[in-house]
């Protein structure tokens, strides 16, 4: 399959960039910082700081959950913005876009491969936070039964599975933003512009989500369900938000994917 080979090449380029690893490292630093800070401080009273912070000292696995919670509003969108905004505009900026298209990669195929690459990063990013968080948490704190939001407790193995489920939820959550970044990326030859525009999109959406005056808009915002990953910490799990979030992100993917396709397949490559 030539498409798969191009995807392999795309991932090779993405993960041979130092920038990609720097971003994953920065994300990995979040749970490490949190866990070390909790370790060094005396007991955290409940209700202070980000949710779950007080649970870390009881159970190391919560370092992963807390870190994901902290990373969701800004850090994750930031890295996704960089990767997704770079997809097409980065190639245009380097000038390599014209050689890919002359190869010929095919515009539709290249766009799909570029998006797939961004999605792979969108999966890698939250899983990095979750796994590094679980690792550092297990190293610094006891790991035992985990208390869910409902007050019920589950074993460490199931807790780890739920942690990964949350990472998967966040990966799905970032699909819409990736599609937005892809579209932004087809609009310009300046990758930094596309990256900034994508991140601004994520921030504006979250601000709008916090304004009660825009309540009618809230269910339509792609950030609206980002924090609903907490529904995976209830007993029994609330799957509705997972499904609703997937549907929402799918909608953004359809809209911005179609826009990106239209723009990319009709634009003159003059870089």
């Amino acid at each position: 399959m030539p498409g798969l080979r191009l995807l392999g090449s795309e991932l090779g380029v993405l993960f041979r960039r130092r920038r990609t690893w720097a971003m994953l490292l920065a994300l990995a630093a979040i749970p490490v910082l949190i866990a070390v800070a909790v370790r060094l401080s005396s007991a955290v009273p409940p209700g202070r700081g980000p949710a779950f912070l007080d649970r870390i000292s009881q159970n190391g696995l919560f370092a992963g959950v807390t870190a994901m919670l902290v990373a969701v509003p800004l850090f994750l969108p930031l890295t996704i913005g960089v990767v997704a905004g770079d997809t097409v505009a980065g190639e245009a900026g380097l000038g390599t876009l014209r050689y890919l298209l002359a190869a010929p990669a095919g515009r539709g195929r290249l766009l799909v491969v570029k998006f797939a690459g961004a999605v792979v990063f969108a999966v890698a990013a939250p899983f990095t936070v979750a796994l590094v968080g679980a690792g550092i948490g297990a190293a610094l704190f006891p790991v035992g039964p985990v208390t869910l939001l409902s007050g019920d407790s589950i074993g460490a193995a199931e807790a780890l599975a739920r942690l990964l489920l949350i990472a998967a939820y966040l990966a799905v959550s970032l699909v819409g933003l990736s599609a937005i970044g892809l579209f932004m990326s087809t609009l310009t030859d300046v990758p930094v512009g596309a990256m900034a525009a994508t991140v601004v999109f994520a921030v504006v959406s979250q601000v709008a989500d916090a304004l009660p005056q825009l309540e009618w808009l809230h269910p339509w915002l792609f950030t609206h369900r980002w924090l609903d990953f907490a529904d995976l910490l209830r007993q029994p799990i609330v799957w509705d938000s997972f499904a609703a979030n997937a549907l929402l992100q799918g909608g953004y993917l359809a809209v911005f994917g179609a826009l990106a396709y239209a723009r990319f397949t009709t634009k003159d490559v003059l870089s």
Partner: peptide, 18 residues
């Protein structure tokens, strides 16, 4: 791609040709 070797660059462009 400045961060890839010459050969890796060519491999990349060749992979783009179905």
């Amino acid at each position: 791609y400045p961060f890839l070797s010459g050969a890796a660059n060519l491999l990349r462009f060749d992979a783009a040709d179905p």
